[in-house]
Design a protein around this nucleic acid. Sequence first.
RNA 1: GCGAGAGUGGCGGAAUGGCAGACGCGCAAGACUUAGGAUCUUGUGGGUAACCGUGGGGGUUCAAGUCCCCCCUCUCGCACCA
Length: 876
Amino acid sequence: MAQTYDHQVVEAKWQAHWEQTGLFQVKEDATTPKYYCLEMFPYPSGRIHMGHVRVYAIGDVIARYKTMRGFHVLHPMGWDAFGLPAENAAIEKGVHPNAWTQENVAYMKKQLRRMGLSYDWDREVNTSQPDYYRWNQWIFLKMVERGLAYRKRSAVNWCPSCETVLANEQVLAQEGKDGGVCWRCESVVIQKELEQWFFRITQYAQELLDGCDRLTSWPARVLAMQRHWIGRSQGVGIDFPVAEPRDDLTAIRIFTTRPDTIYGATFMSLAPESPLVEQLIAGRACAETVRAFVERVSRLDKATRTAADREKEGVFTGAYAINPFTQERIPIWVANFVLYEYGTGAIMAVPAHDQRDFEFAKHYNIPIRLVIQNPDETLATDALDAAYEEQEQAGVLVNSGTFTGLSVPDAKQAMGEYVEAQGWGKRTINFRLRDWGISRQRYWGTPIPMLYCGHCGIVPVPENQLPVLLPEDVPFTGKGGSPLKESPSFAKATCPTCGGTARRESDTMDTFVDSSWYFLRYCSPQDTNQPVNPHAAQHWMAVDQYVGGIEHAVLHLLYARFFTKVLRDLGLTKVDEPFVHLLTQGMVTKETYWCEEHRWVLPSDTIKEDGQRLCGQCRKVIVTGRTEKMSKSKKNIASPEDLCDRYGADTARLFSLFAAPPEKDLEWSDTGVEGCSRFLNRVWRLVQEQLPVFREVNDQPISQESALLADLQRATHHTIQKVTHDLERDFQFNTAIAALMELVNQLYKSMKDYPMNALTADERGGWRSAIETLLILLAPFAPHLAEELWNTAGHVTSIARQPWPLFNPDLVVSTEWTIPIQVNGKLRSKISVPAGSTKDQIIASAQSDTKLIEWLQDKTPRKVIYVEQKLVNFVM
RNA sequence: GCGAGAGUGGCGGAAUGGCAGACGCGCAAGACUUAGGAUCUUGUGGGUAACCGUGGGGGUUCAAGUCCCCCCUCUCGCACCA
């Protein structure tokens, strides 16, 4: 019996060897094509989880495969190391965020190394270190120079009890409370206005939208989400004169995409935050009521405020506007559903043709006027139970003056032109996309390199004073404003313009800034003069394959696209889009059950009894069983460390690639892991048993006729074809691995069929070649095992550097064909014919097949379909 | 509501319009064993059978899981954007 495979020893041995020999270090190289393979870098939370194993296994197979295909592959790794959890650890455990982060990085790096990933660790980046974040500051200054970074007042979540700003994820929904609550003290969170820094991403809105059309190798749903987020819409801005002008307020501009409905506008609505509201109500009797309403609405956090199912509410301002088309006086209301940030913060309300306005009008008894008629089903105003919003199919204007009778699209066009001709407004394009607010009132992030001088105002930190370092002397209490304000060494600075005393900006940058350009930094990670060396970027960019979770479909990927365009305009890169192909891998889930008493329960902690599933502890019947994303609270964690201890990294990798296609969710299965482990052991034993057969044999041309040789060649070349095809086409790892399993099954069969002691020299050579092909094909998936066996077989150079085998179509040809025979499209028989038989020979042979006689009887088929080497179908 | 995707054995999942269920798990029988939760072999969609089978109903085709039309269910994302 061959010795069993000791994964612990073998994997450690090769990991050390690869590292010592610098196998995965990569340089720019003009002689072979480049390939840039990138997986989204992790947040150093402490431990890697199965989701990490999956995404990095996927990336690693791609990188290793492309290397074997002759590319020089950039495959880097780093740490998205700034962020809230480090600060929470500081507040709760008293550890400094930097110490906490560095410790986690060290630990997780060790874990990643155990997986045998082919990273060039010389290119490692850590966004929390000054050699990285100084370039965030540098880019920020360039953006200030170009007007792409600016300051404005904006609302933040504020906990009145902790007196601190909260990130959106620190605001929790709580039942019975109108609005979110603080994660620590459960006080109701309010909105507070602060001066904050913004990136003008809206300047690139159109380019970001157009770019989506060229990202043809991105998943459709990611593109759909990006397009929706950018949200371009075409409409008209129209001035409605104020009936009794107040001071300089003579008209209010609204934005609408439905100018065709303007004859049906029976009121106007303003956003509560609009400064026009105060102008309109000042001195009126209703002023206090309106102010109270505005106050109440604007205290709510954004998520609560904009929930679609929120009841529509409003209040009349007492003022009127004039509809320019009808000269009619319409009341001006304030409404909770009107967004100040979108359009002009004011809308014309057409209850008959907008569902929100409809509900509002019903509630407050405002007239509803039908101006679009449905030709298929005549609508009556009194009978409407919802707004008629149809725009594409039908709809003809009624009650609309000279525009009556036009179709909706024609009316949109004509009325838009009319507005412009009359000087009432103009056609405009609006985007949902907002400028990106990057100020965070946090410690563990990149300090924003700006100064506030009593004399000179807002002054950028001069470039030669970068980086602005994070100070160490900061207390972490979780209370109060920005932690950086508490550092005496940090807050005070000298104004570079006048030499006077200046205050340093105490906010830090959103961590999404860090991840918006790290892929460029990998091209020249040690450059001390600039964020990225343009020559290195020219060589490596764009990223050929990006792999990561779908949760980043909008923000990260959009910001990274934005930064790429900004850095392009700064002359640092020439690419417009950073990521050519995008693979969004599914989550790793595990089956769990929900017990009323014991919450989430693992399958192993349940009992099956009388066809019912009971909780193992309380024996209550469980009703909910489903697969959930792995999480601590659900207790359905499978630990990568345990997995590596018990089965090894190769098994962990193989399972996470085999159990589901990469883009789908993967359900964890302990027995599935066993299956993969079993497969690797089968490979191990196969090679061990064949070793003596081919060890002394050199590769030699195969001259001999031999059934075994033909079998071996057919099997290996068929596998080469299948595995290559599956990898080339969307990285279908699961079917590629299945093909390798089939090959191993085949080889076992051949081993059984042809006794080893009777093999000829040629046949030994055939065995050698078959096994080496298997190992090479397996190498990207299970690199340690493949390397070990490759080495055992007498090779000194790494299998990771072997060229990928080429498929030879001549070698898969078999001596006979099996042709399925159908009668009227149903399978009735299969026949074997010599390879190369003609259509007529095959049909003749089918007609004489005994199984078919009863189906064909003596009748002449009406028609015979023959598909080359595939099938025969008799139509009777 | 809008957008994207998915419905195939006991389970995860395979199938350029051409043999439905590859491969793996599970299960069953056998072999080897003091033993087996190791390993190997064989079988395994349903039905006694004719036959029936890819969410349901139509259609195109010699042939449909795959293409077209209608419907149902589920998952994910966005969600008052005027």
